[in-house]
Simulated assay, not measured.
Amino acid sequence: MQNPDAGRYAVASFSGGSFWDLEAAFRRVEGVVSTGAGYSGGTTESPSYSEVSEGGSGHAETVVVGFDPAVVSYRDLLEVFFSAHDPTGWEYEEIAPGGQYRPVIWFHSPEQKEEAEAFCAEMDSSGIYDPPVVTAVEPAGDFWPAEEQHQHYYERLASYFAVRQWQG
Rank of each mutant, 00 (worst) to 15 (best):
F67T: 11
T43D: 10
V71F: 07
G56F: 09
D68E: 05
H59D: 04
G58D: 10
S83V: 00
E54C: 04
S73A: 12
F82V: 01
Y49Q: 09
G66I: 02
F81R: 01
P47E: 06
P69E: 14
V65E: 02
E54R: 15
G66C: 05
G41W: 03
V63D: 01
S46I: 13
S46C: 14
S83K: 13
Y74A: 06
D76Y: 06
V65H: 01
V80W: 02
S57A: 13
Y39V: 10
S83A: 15
V64F: 03
A70F: 10
S48L: 13
G42E: 07
S46M: 14
E45K: 14
G55M: 05
S57P: 07
A60I: 05
F67L: 12
V63I: 10
G66K: 13
V64C: 13
V72M: 13
V64S: 12
P47T: 00
S73R: 05
F81T: 03
G38Q: 00
V52Y: 00
D76M: 04
H59G: 03
G55N: 07
S53F: 10
S48A: 13
F67D: 11
A37N: 05
E61D: 11
L78K: 06
P69M: 14
S46F: 14
L77W: 10
G38A: 02
F67K: 11
A70I: 08
S73T: 15
A70V: 10
S53N: 12
S40Q: 14
S46A: 15
Y39Q: 04
Y74R: 09
L78N: 03
F82K: 00
E61N: 11
S40M: 15
P69C: 15
V63M: 10
G55L: 04
L77R: 04
R75C: 02
T43G: 14
P47D: 00
